[in-house]
């Protein structure tokens, strides 16, 4: 996983966000075993307690579930509950939409122009076989 950490926001919150992105983008699939705290922290180059906090938060949101592992007593896995993941996806999409609309409106475009620009862009990129 690639991690993008800024230091002016709490790191654990950023870890939660980026792990959620990994869940909804399919980098981590439902039912997948999640690497250990230690490995994830080393990968993100952050403190283990910070990563632990992030994982605990995801667990409390139901996105990660405890899983018995052959080797490790306490491992984690992605939840099998796809509805939860879909909900996250929707929320994420909504916040992207909010952000997008806000920015477009601040450029002075009205709602009609926004919609037509979006349609234009979508058809262009579809024909390019994206």
């Amino acid at each position: 996983m690639t991690w993008n950490i800024d230091y002016d926001r709490p790191i654990w919150i950023q870890l939660v966000e980026q792990l959620q992105v990994a869940l909804i983008s399919g980098e981590l699939n439902p039912g997948d075993a999640v690497p250990s705290v230690r490995d994830l922290a080393a990968d993100a180059q952050v403190n283990i307690n910070t990563m632990q906090r992030a994982l605990a938060e995801l667990e409390s949101r139901g996105l990660l579930v405890p899983k018995d592992n052959r080797w490790r007593a306490s491992g984690r896995a992605v939840t099998e509950d796809r509805s939860l993941i879909d909900e996250i996806k929707l929320n994420y999409a909504r916040s992207i939409l909010e952000d997008f609309t806000q920015k477009m409106r601040s450029l002075g475009l009205d709602d009609g122009e926004i919609v037509s620009k979006v349609a234009e862009y979508l058809s262009k990129t579809r024909s390019k076989g994206e």
Binding site: Y7, R9, V46, N47, N49, T50, R53
Partner: peptide, 29 residues
């Protein structure tokens, strides 16, 4: 990035001590 907690010291005195993420929650690194 690897610190849990920080203690700021200056001129032989402790200025301030807190968890790193608490500091970041206020918008500063």
């Amino acid at each position: 990035r690897i610190l849990d907690d920080v203690i700021f010291v200056s001129n032989g005195q402790i200025m301030f001590a807190d968890a790193a993420d608490n500091i970041r929650a206020q918008g500063k690194s």
